[in-house]
Design a protein around this nucleic acid. Structure first.
Lengths: 348, 348
DNA sequence: CTGAAAGCGCTAACAG
DNA sequence: CTGTTAGCGCTTTCAG
């Protein structure tokens, strides 16, 4: 058995340095405090010598303008709040990474709110206290109304990855309806006849559209989805996917293809087949949705639909920044095209 | 071919509401502004009626104190900066999730800086501008000195998951040295004789310690690590793990066991074996490190070392909060115990 | 218990 | 071009 090892180390004198203020700089540079401010905000109407004097003082005193004071004056914080929820779904870290990169390039900081842990109250408070200049919601559903309204009250909001009817904000998503349809047509054309689906709550527009597109196209092809081959999970995880697929595979007449409304589910489904020794793709095809990084791993080699994440993110952010700058045009509802990525989990 | 679908929608009148201030509340409640402030900061010296008057006005006007102003006065922002870097390694999203939960419970917001995208300058600026009350670094190495010094100047810093010699801050990690040793002893005891390792840069203390522990224990067991069975990768990803393992498996005398210094690498290695039809565990054992969620998936079923992430996080945060509150004791260097988790990638 | 008053550090008119 | 001045909205003495 281990014991907790706790080693205290080094003596310490810990002193937070007093920070220089713009007044200190002014005194040091022999100019007025407002000139310091001008230099720092990039105001061009400053004599070159004065500017250099100020800059020198800034360097010597390692001065940095105080963010809180600046935020108070300008009522701009430079923070963008990003609401995520299912960090366990690798799609969201991927998105977060792209968001972080784009936001920083645009000169903002990213404040992350993970609403799955707390109720949305924390985010709402932060917004009300004007801790952010704008917000991006990645997992909005009609259920998030409270958050949305709070946001909308103070700062612009942009939805990414989700569409919520009736919300008065910009929304950027990909064409999940067509995505679902493409999968259905692909499976039908390949001669699959017992086609199953693992779906989820239609509260999320992504899921709803994928399912609707899939169902609709199957029906249109004269091969309506059999309800016995259709399982719904309440949360999206490897485990729920595994369990749902297990149920389908235990049927006396199991499906010959399964469409999973997202990749995490599909990975679980793939393993449910693996555990039962069901060969992919000879006995069963599996299709996912999102093209998360793991979909391309050999263990899964998953056919899936790729969302244009980078483009979605860049679009969302530029929309948001426009709004922050005061743009008041009509709400944009942007829908970007997806792409079917064929891999080994279906015949190539 | 798809076309970009762009649908503008709904007319719009977008008006950011003017927020009520504490003066508005004071007027509405018929008290002075300072009384409002007292009520909101929880000052007990307020008459009950006055308090209720204020609270009523707050509710009616949907008032929330302005964060920037409050931050300026108190020089506390309520933000904690979290420095991460490899979001593509699932360990970090897992950590982020735990951190977010714990921080919010402690009344803080989490500002995430992903240093892999940008140089650390952004984080440094944010710190200097006092945008955070403290910071947690998850991926510190001796190379991060610039960031560390910047942080250290204004706000307390706590290292989690990494140890950097000589840094004057609290550090919380798990016992990676013992972890490496435990793996070595486990493999040796199982009779493995051609033991390989996929390692990485010893700049990160985690990696350095795991490797040192592993190497040391093998040597102590009279079975020193053969250099031909040792591959180093420069970054940690599925792909680099896959490639590194491929090299080992292509040797004329391939290893009968491989220790991967983290799970992401191990997942890649597992797939390198899978692709070659090498059966696990009969022909090859694989051991990882971290016990990320995927390690338990059937496709991988990976024996690994589990770090006590939750405990590490909670410890780090409480240490940080103490420092924020002004605690000036000696720097703590806390090392928590790990646990070997045996799964199917080694004989059970 | 409560109001008046003094700023926190900064930006942005407004006069020079 | 530059200094003076007036706050941003809040917390916190300091007198009542």
């Amino acid at each position: 058995m281990y014991k907790l090892l706790l080693i205290s180390k080094l003596m310490t004198t810990y002193s937070r340095n007093e920070m220089a203020t713009s007044h200190d700089i002014a005194r040091r540079a022999g100019v007025s405090q407002s000139t310091v401010s001008r230099v720092l905000t990039g105001n061009p109407k400053v004599r070159k010598e004065a500017r250099e004097l100020v800059l020198a003082a800034v360097r010597e005193l390692k001065y940095r303008p105080n963010g809180a004071a600046r935020a108070m004056r300008t009522s701009q914080t430079g923070n963008i709040g990003v609401v995520v929820s299912r960090l366990a779904n690798p799609l969201y870290p991927e998105m977060l990474q792209i968001l972080g990169r784009c936001l920083i390039r645009a000169g903002f900081r990213m404040v992350v709110w993970n609403t799955e842990e707390v109720d949305e109250k924390v985010a709402i408070d932060a917004i009300h206290e004007s801790r952010v200049d704008g917000a991006i919601m990645t997992t909005a559903t009609a259920d998030s109304t409270e958050l949305y309204e709070a946001l909308q009250l103070n700062v612009p909001v942009v939805l990414i990855n989700r569409v919520v009817e009736g919300w008065r904000c910009d929304q950027v998503a990909s064409d999940n309806l067509t995505g679902g349809r493409v999968v259905a047509e692909y499976l039908a054309k390949a001669g699959k006849r017992r086609i199953g689906m693992i779906g989820g709550s239609p509260l999320a527009s992504t899921i709803r559209d994928r399912q609707a597109g899939f169902r609709g196209a199957l029906a249109a092809g004269g091969l309506p989805l059999e309800e016995t081959l259709c399982v719904h999970v309440d949360t999206f995880s490897y485990k729920t996917g595994f369990d749902a697929a297990s149920r389908l595979l235990e049927l006396s007449e199991p499906p010959d293809a399964i469409f999973c409304v997202n990749d995490v589910i599909a990975l679980g489904a793939r393993d449910a087949a693996r555990v039962r020794g069901i060969d992919i793709p000879s006995r069963l095809w599996i299709v996912g949705y999102d093209d998360i990084e793991m979909a391309s791993w050999h263990a899964f080699d998953l056919t899936t639909i790729r969302q244009p994440l980078v483009q979605m993110t860049e679009t969302a952010i530029s929309l948001l920044i426009e709004r922050i700058r005061g743009h008041e045009g009509e709400w944009q509802n942007i829908c970007l095209p997806n792409e079917l990525v064929i891999r080994g989990s279906t015949g190539r």
